[in-house]
Design a binder for these strands. Structure first.
Length: 220
DNA sequence: GCGACAG
DNA sequence: ATCTTGTCGC
């Protein structure tokens, strides 16, 4: 697939924050999706020591959820981990992995926050904007906002609040398992986002799927 | 000033 | 992200 926009990644923290403020107004926080036939799970992380940043992508057919394509990219880490600036560390590798795909996914489920972020531009939103594909932030822990604990029932969720607004959902994808932090990336509404995350967790847990893709791709 | 802080 | 010990549920 080809990329839509690009910008420099050689930035200071202050420049990165300024860029987030500049990009934020371009986010579309309502449903603008094509029929979803391919969902991509995007997993980000780095190797022990932090010298190498990795991104793995697993593309699943929807709604069957079988894996049709995987990609892995590694790059020397060029930006430190700073809470709120994760995308500047991880996205170069993610974009490189996405470029390897034969066909563009219709929806991205990205490891990390979307608008549940101090400047409403977490990695999922930043990514969705750059590639112009609907995206959802799926994080394992909280970065921003306050919430009640969701009931211990599959599908239950509570709002994630900040500044009197609902910025995401704390979603129980399985009973007796820590809930996921869902927030909008780009071109999708919260109701739709929750629906897709639950649909993708019916037979596979997406984090496990991407991790599996990560391992498969690593052995080459 | 002090705590909080995606991966 | 990564490391570790103790506890719980299947």
């Amino acid at each position: 697939m080809k990329l839509q926009f690009s910008h420099s990644w050689n930035l200071t923290s202050a420049e990165a924050i300024a860029l987030q403020r500049k990009l934020r107004p371009h986010l579309i926080l309502e449903d603008r999706l094509k029929p979803v036939q391919r969902v991509a799970g995007v997993d980000v992380g780095f190797e022990a020591g932090g010298a190498v940043t990795r991104a793995a992508v697993a593309v699943l057919r929807y709604p069957e959820l079988d894996v049709v394509e995987t990609a892995l990219a590694q790059r020397p880490t060029a930006f430190p981990y700073v809470p709120g600036l994760l995308s500047f560390r991880e996205l170069p590798a993610v974009l490189e992995a996405l470029e390897q795909l034969r066909e563009s996914p219709d929806l991205l489920l990205c490891d990390g926050q979307g608008i549940a972020h101090p400047r409403q531009l977490g990695i999922a939103s930043h990514l969705g904007l750059l590639v112009d594909i609907p995206s959802i932030g799926v994080a394992k822990t909280r970065l921003y906002g306050t919430h009640d604990e969701p009931p211990n029932v599959r599908g239950a969720w509570t709002p994630l609040w900040a500044g009197g607004e609902i910025i995401g959902a704390v979603l129980r994808t399985r009973p007796n398992v820590k809930p996921l932090y869902i927030s909008l990336g780009h071109r999708i509404s919260l109701d739709t986002a929750i629906r897709y995350v639950m649909a993708c967790c019916t037979r596979y847990r997406l984090p496990e799927t991407t991790r599996h893709a990560h391992r498969l791709a690593s052995r080459r």
